[in-house]
Design a protein around this nucleic acid. Structure first.
Lengths: 210, 210
DNA sequence: TCCGTCGTCTTGACATTGACAAGATGGAGG
DNA sequence: CCTCCATCTTGTCAATGTCAAGACGACGGA
């Protein structure tokens, strides 16, 4: 193992080809989308031979799986970034997470598609399943903070999780597809207000007072 | 033009290769998904040479575009099938359409992905854009029936359209992905009740009484 | 009835891609 | 200094999408 060294090691023994391929892979993904993604394109971007990626990721889906795992981490960051600017009450926090969810989808559409609508990322790989589970858990805890009950133990609260997730995910997915033109055409402030209004209907209220 | 004739015309001049390729394409799509779809595979299923499809659909995306258009028609059929079994009041009808939306996604997952999460279907083709617009229109009219206002002219009602669509779409998409395990694990009746509960929160109420 | 036209379908070819095998390179540890 | 072996390269093959050229045969006109 060559440890992490950033300098270009010229020619053989790149130094940190794994990370370089992930960076190249994300550019490839951003520019060509999941469906236009090629392993050889990534290798070219990283300046290595076409077969080099195999030694680090096995096959093309292996690299995509690593990218999806990275995506889930960034996904959570987007949610937390919104929450940092929001009021601290549980409901405002969950609402902010929802807006962050949409932020992520619009900022990284190809990554979003890879994570939620592709069969190429392999969720049986621990790094990915754990990242995805962490994102789900974060939502569950957000609902728990409002409901006061652990959704894993309280089926009614788990339905709130499903409802919140479904609503936010659907809005994000359709906006990313260019559908939802009325929403996309709005200026930012109005769009956020509209999203908040819609998401708010899906969020649970305080305790059991629904 | 050979008109429509169903008998096998043996060898050259298939008779209705276009339709045969659409049927073959749907099988290919069902078995391999959008990402595993190959034009040559479709040709083989239809019993013609690998280049035959080009004369009817141009390229691979052309066939996928035709399949997506067909998908949107079936999509509407699924919604109407549910509505035929539901109460006739506008709210029950829109709710039923939502359940039909989910039915479609679960029954034809590859088609759903092609229609909503792929860049391979070309929405600039009239046959597809019209089919997609018809499906959107159907939703708009469903909301209109509840609100009493034309969402195309009333922005507030259009937000109801977005909310309803987003919620139903998100639930369908996530269930199709195998996420939403708590929902998927439920027996059918309970699942439908849960879906109805969630969708109900997104649907508009009678007139302006929100 | 015969023949030419044109849409339909086939064969053949080529570039691209994913994947595999075998070999070259050079850092690390003995 | 020398060997090991992970890393990376080159070479190759099958599969695929697409294009070009030609074979086929239904149709309409003479």
């Amino acid at each position: 193992m060559a440890e992490d060294r950033t300098g270009d090691r010229s020619a053989y023994h790149h130094g940190d080809l794994r990370q370089a391929l992930i960076d190249a892979g994300e550019r490839e993904l951003t520019e060509k989308g999941v469906e236009g993604f090629t392993l050889r394109g990534c290798a070219k971007r990283a300046g290595v031979s076409h077969a080099a990626p195999a030694h680090h990721f096995g096959d093309a889906n292996g690299l995509l799986t690593a990218l999806a795992a990275l995506g889930f981490q960034r996904f959570l960051s987007c949610q937390k970034a919104r929450q940092a600017e929001a009021a601290s009450d549980p409901r405002s926090q969950l609402m902010a997470a929802g807006l962050g969810y949409v932020d992520f989808a619009l900022a990284y559409p190809a990554l979003f598609r890879l994570m939620f609508a592709s069969s190429r990322a392999d969720f049986s790989v621990a790094a990915l399943s754990e990242a995805a589970d962490a994102a789900f858990d974060y939502l569950v805890r957000g609902v728990e903070a409002i409901r006061g009950r652990d959704p894993y133990r309280d089926p009614v609260s788990m339905l709130d999780v499903m409802g919140t997730w479904g609503t936010v995910h659907g809005l994000a997915d359709l906006m990313l597809s260019g559908r939802m033109k009325p929403l996309l055409a709005m200026p930012k402030a109005a769009r956020e207000a509209a999203l908040s209004e819609i998401i708010g209907r899906a969020l649970p209220e305080r305790a059991d007072d629904r």
